[in-house]
Design a binder for these strands. Sequence first.
DNA 1: TTTAAAATTGTAATTATTACAAATCTGATG
DNA 2: CATCAGATTTGTAATAATTACAATTTTAAA
Lengths: 144, 144
Amino acid sequence: MPTSSNISAGYRRLTEHGIKPSLQRLAIMDYLMEHRTHPTVDAIYSELSPSMPTLSRTTVYNTLKLLVDKGAVLQITIDEKNCRYDAATEPHSHFRCIGCGSVEDLSIAPPMISPALLGGREITDTELYLLGYCPSCAATRRKG
Amino acid sequence: MPTSSNISAGYRRLTEHGIKPSLQRLAIMDYLMEHRTHPTVDAIYSELSPSMPTLSRTTVYNTLKLLVDKGAVLQITIDEKNCRYDAATEPHSHFRCIGCGSVEDLSIAPPMISPALLGGREITDTELYLLGYCPSCAATRRKG
DNA sequence: TTTAAAATTGTAATTATTACAAATCTGATG
DNA sequence: CATCAGATTTGTAATAATTACAATTTTAAA
């Protein structure tokens, strides 16, 4: 069933943030909005590369930097190995399994911090990261 | 004024966590307990190297990995460039200025999440990261 | 068309981290 | 004290993530 418009959610997100929607930017933005997997740069590149053979890894880096700078996507640093990217807009938190490395959303809004506790700092982003074992890894640990 | 004992806080922290207190481990642990600056590997190496000329960067990496694995210090991933380390034990949060890059403690306990919201995940660590502008960088931005 | 600016690309460089084998240290034992 | 095994440290080389940068391509205005 076709939607009422072929202007993608990614297109809207880009233009809303003052980003010119080139083919590459659109592909990356759409990918992030359709795959809430907190992908790494390499994951995005590997996924898009087949259907966009001229895509360069550098473009993925450049684009993600632009998207983050313009506030169109969020950079997640829960994984010390490499950055991950998230296009979700609702307040939520992240969980990383220290067994298998998966990163998942939790629908838990990070706490709102009262200005009194912030000593004049201006907060632009609040990230709540939970680390531990996913159900499957927790079970494995208990058994063998 | 001498204290009642020359066994350092670092020594105690190491042995409490089942870590044999070698000279290098002790120096690193003491450094972390005396400098609550969330130093990077390189900062620790650069600070200790003069008074411990044979110290190797690899040893700093090895030791921090050991300390983190044994739960003697915390690894902070608020800075996407490199890991930082924290020996504080009281529940607290971290702030990073996106202007100047400084990382500071905030005496705000991360929220306790009810098991019902965690879907069988076992949480071992909760990190609350606030990003924004420190008072000085905020002022600079407003003016020029 | 022409042209200038913006965007993309590929390569090379840089930086953080890890792998690993050799050297050194430690502490127990004869 | 001398020996020895295991643990620890060290330096170098390898890997991985990211950035710098110059050349090419695309875009869109004149």
